[in-house]
Write a protein that binds this DNA or RNA. Sequence first.
DNA 1: CTAAGAATATTTTTT
DNA 2: ATATTCTTAG
Length: 900
Amino acid sequence: MAFEPFLAYEASAGSGKTFNLVVRYLSLLFMGEDPRSIVALTFTNKAANEMLERMIVTLEHLHERGELAAIAQVCEMSPEEILSRRSEVLRRFLRSDIQISTIDKFFGRILRKFALNAGIMPTFKTTQNHHEVKLLERFLNEVEVAGASDALVHLSRLSDKRLSDLFLLLSQLYSKHKELDLDGYAGVNVVEEAIEEAMAAAAELKTLVLGKGLSDTANRAIEAESFELLLKKTWLYQPSLNYWVFKKGFEPRMDEVLARIQAAVKRHFRRREGLYFKELFTVLKLYIKSRKVMAVQNNELSFDDITLMVHTLLREKLESEFLYFRLDSHLKHLLLDEFQDTSVLQFDILRPLIEEIRSGIGVNEGGSFFFVGDVKQSIYRFRGGVSALFHQVAEYFNVHIEPLRVNYRSRSTIVEFVNRAFGGKIAGYTPQMSPEKLSGGYVAVAMSDDLLETLSRTVASLIDQGVQPEEIAVLTVTNKDGSAVEEHLSLQGYDVVTETTARLVSQHSVRAVIEYLRYCYFDVPIYRFNCAALIGLSPDQIERHILADPVEGAIAFIRRYEIADKSVLMFVEALRGYRDLEEVVFEIDRLEASSPQSDLRGIRIMTVHKSKGLEFEHVIVLDQLGKPRAHNDPIVYEYEGAQLQRLYYRIKDREVLDSLYAEALAKEKKASAEDRLNALYVALTRAVESLWVITKEKSSWFAPLELTPAEWGRLEKKEAKAKSEEIQRPLIYRARRFGRQEESVSAPKEATHDYAAVQFGLALHYTLEMMGSFTEEAMGRALESARNRYGAVLHPGAMEEIASRVLSLIQDPTFASLCAGEWRKEQMIRYQGSINVIDLLVRHGDEWVIIDYKSGREEEQKHREQVGRYVEAIAALSGQKASGYLCYLLPGGVEWVKCL
DNA sequence: CTAAGAATATTTTTT
DNA sequence: ATATTCTTAG
């Protein structure tokens, strides 16, 4: 198929989505497009890393890859022609600023570029948890100043919620607020006549019923002393009183009065809704203001903040056309992965870019737009993902959608099982096909009262069959279940790798220490109770101390109650970074560190959501250990496609009285049911060889699928294959084994606060990267190239400074001796889930030397850690000796630091 | 056997 | 908020 500029793939699970993305991207390169003009966006760092890795691997081994033929076809060239240009394309690709990232990072980059237009500093940090306490303080302050305290109190009373719940709701609405009409309820009046009318009618009904001389039960039931009690009556929500104990004395007039009560109650609910939103939006506006002020003050933004700011900047400000123009000049091809998870806001930001591409004018001549996704795998509605966008956008831009129907991942038995399970359940489900060479496979559905017990039996039988632990993945519904599974399997002596999001501060033992520290600081009993509950003691066993130093206090506490474990020890280390106890108690919840990994190898445990986009040889999907949670959201959002239509205030039983509300509620229920089905689809399509479903009888997560215990196919016993070959290939670092470990230990961010210094460092690196050899002649050419690229953003004299520092490097005797060997620049390695780039890797016989250039010594400790990790990775991968050096290119000359 | 009403248990997914 | 269980009256 020749190149189609506007194209989308509807890619079911395992149908080669990444393959097609890679083919698309590489085809553009082979057609001569500049890598800098191609932007490929995904939703997770994992996916972005994998895509990048896949591109490099494909380019490196193009002659033996399936992508070759596909690329040749798209480019309308012969495979030989493609191969002849391979090394040139690879070089060009690696040397450019590759724009493969998550959509959030992409927006982050845009915001950094235009930060000053948005009124913030380009050096802003991104954070997941903002200063809760400070924000609350600021918000309450705003509320008071605006004279909205009454609204806040009223809201709390109206919804019978605590302030903290309200605060949570506000932060949810914050990310959605651009879709809302914040002034839409301003004119709601406060007068309430409906209650009186309902009560009057209720009294009338009461006399009517009492006059019939019915049973005590009937007489008691009809009595409603107050409006609140009236709302609790079951008969209020019945279509007629011609039932139960009222049946005996029923006459049609009773239903007429009942209808009047119901109409009045319905009006009351409407009024309550209007009032609620009026107050809520008044307060929300103040919340939004507080968030903005906090963001600017702390120079710290969340993902939501970034998206909202970029949206304001590009879609609402006057100069937005100019800004888009500046963006556009670099962007010609847009590739979007997992499109079904895009939010309305995200797409609204991208839309003008796509429109610009479609116009085909100027630099955009020959531009393209490509997206892949699968609405069946849309599981992020709760985060703003709107799957309806997929078809809506395709229609709007007149994009041809190509379905990918063949499953190249799972064995046929699994594919058939999935087809059976979801056919007729997911609307418009088309069965997947299975290629002949993938016949076989095994599926088992087991029903059990003791899920964990059945799980360990299943694991044991797999291991018995010769399956390696790292080929098994256990998928759970919740993170909590994941922890339970981890504990259970560890106790049985299995090695496990958890990838559930386990923040250090949410570990049991760590929580106990935090509650203790808070108790010491605040002297409020609640912390004492919390702490005691966490370590299983009675509150009077917890003593309060005046703590001079939180670290010492924590250690003493841990010793006294013997709660030391890996997490707590790591936490104590983290505590050392805090100034004093006060800082700890207020800031500790923002600590982003993850709890330490159990082991590097073993059975993988993760949530279904985390497993999206991954595949495993043997998958065990475990039913929910607890009961499913009912939704708690006080607001019902009514969507029509991707368009938010209306909000409703959730009131129990309101649907019986209010048909519009009932409709919205039904839509919401349907959407939730779809979410569940989609999550199930994701869960059951991760397996390659065998799939094991462990369900329970009551309140099962699998209930919508109506599964019954059975098994299909046969589990083939495999001879253990030698796994060492991958490691022995020199100079190809596909660190599969290390790559398994996802990003729980993420590389420390380089916290640099000086924008000019960052640019200077980048230019310096770029110069070194561009040098084909370490000679003065090569340096001249590299400097030229760096000047073209960074000249405009650097301060005067910076290029000369770079020249002098690089010159002292190539004249440095230590450098000359370290480089005397086979060397590689910009060597990418995948280590612990993130891709790292080693500036210079030199091989001296059977020893390796790692050199990392730095332009300043301010963060030497971090640099040492970073190089230390490279050394560890290279040593582990090659099985040979490795040493690392930090090469500081300082104004006064080169300084070396050896890292172990 | 039926329905109301009280009491009780349980309670996500994440860039 | 919701599902389940139990008690009670008819």
